Amino acid sequence: MSEDRRLDVLRAIVEDYVATREPVGSRALVERHALGVSPATIRNDMAALEESGYIAQPHTSAGRVPTDKGYRLFVDRLTTVKPMSVPERRAIGAFLEEAQDLDDVVDRAVRLIAQLTQQVAVVQYPSLRRSALRHVELVPVGARHLLVVLITDTGRVEQRTIELGADLDEVVVGQLRARLNVSAAGRRLSELPVALAELADAFGPSDAALVEAVVGVVEETLAQESEERVVLAGTAYLARGGAVDFAGSIGPVLEALEEQVVLLRLLSEMAEDNASVAVRIGRETQHEGLLETSFITSGYGDENGTSVARVGSIGPLRMDYPGTMSAVRAVARYLTRILAG
């Protein structure tokens, strides 16, 4: 059989199975799709697809369903990601642009993806380790306490309070604030040690404790690992599919989603893909609890266009891949626009 016709038959099986949740037979393909060949030819094509491992028969006398391999071929041969309509794009933009701060942006984005895809949504917070400093503010909050506020180029705000052994000199605090922003603003974590080390040379010995404390808290905050986190929404959508979407219990899937280290690992691995939208199907997730799911992600960036985190959607293998890819990519692009604005 021809390669193109085989792909057409596979595409039709995937689309019908996603739409109906029922195994697809040759008669249904003839009735629903203009494949231009006889039912006998379609049956032969399905037999060849099954032999190659792209589709499978769940039980005797049933139609066929796509396998992980079949879904992968279907996704890889998508020529374009289905664009969202103009009203959809306007609605996404308006909803996200109403956000008040980064936490609100993330919360709105995760709820939006869940609503658009009717699946679990995942939004990763911008990593401090991949962000650059936009501004550092030093605010005296008492005679010996100083509030250090770090604002990144992705809109993330981190606050730390330090206690000093002597009363604060507000003039020195102002000088330190100014020099700190000149030295560190716009630099990424890897560039900060040298810039901050030179800062102490601009102040006298009497101010060394203050400078050392502020530099220490800046470095500690930006270097910490615990800031890596993700936000989820829409887990109830998985339960609605029930036994239709998952051969076993949905419990292992939900347990896997609760393990942030699992999701962060996947997000990190998918960030290495060159495609604007990355897809992991079934066993490609390399986690026992996610074998019956697919994970679609796209990166969003800072004002320099660098990807600093990812957004995504997790659903059953039987998902609307073009629609999910479109929704995830659209939200990622709007997040980039908002954070860079």
Rank of each mutant, 00 (worst) to 15 (best):
L222H: 08
A197Q: 15
E198Y: 08
V244Q: 12
D273Q: 10
G204L: 02
L291S: 13
P205W: 02
N274M: 14
R240K: 15
V244E: 12
D201M: 12
A275P: 10
E269L: 12
D245H: 09
V214L: 00
E284C: 09
L196N: 03
E255L: 13
L222Y: 09
A223T: 15
Q260I: 09
L199P: 02
E288T: 07
A200T: 11
A271G: 15
I281F: 01
L267A: 09
V230H: 06
V279L: 03
V211E: 01
H287Q: 01
G251K: 11
F203E: 04
D273W: 10
L257C: 05
A223D: 12
G186C: 05
G251W: 07
M270Y: 13
A202F: 10
R280C: 08
F295Y: 11
V277H: 08
E255A: 13
Q224A: 13
G204D: 02
R240M: 13
A200L: 11
R280P: 06
S268E: 10
L290F: 08
A278P: 06
V194H: 10
D273F: 14
S206I: 03
Y237Q: 13
V253K: 02
A236R: 15
E227W: 09
Q260W: 05
R187Y: 06
I250F: 01
L257V: 03
V244H: 14
P193A: 05
E227M: 11
M270P: 06
G242R: 09
L291Y: 12
L257M: 09
A223K: 15
A271R: 15
A202Q: 11
A209H: 03
E269I: 12
A233M: 10
S226M: 14
L264V: 13
L189P: 02
L254P: 06
S206V: 07
L257A: 04
P252N: 04
G204H: 01
L196Y: 00
A243I: 12
E259C: 12
V215P: 00
R283M: 14
D273M: 05
A243F: 09
L263V: 11
E284T: 00
L266W: 00
V261K: 15
I281M: 02
T235R: 07
A275M: 05
E220F: 12
E228T: 14
G289D: 06
E269P: 08
T221Y: 06
E292G: 01
S226D: 14
A195L: 00
D245A: 13
V261Q: 14
F246T: 07
V279D: 05
L257Y: 10
P205G: 02
V194Y: 09
A243K: 13
G282L: 03
A239E: 15
V277M: 04
F246Y: 05
A278V: 02
V194N: 08
G216C: 07
V231L: 10
S276T: 14
S249A: 11
S226Y: 08
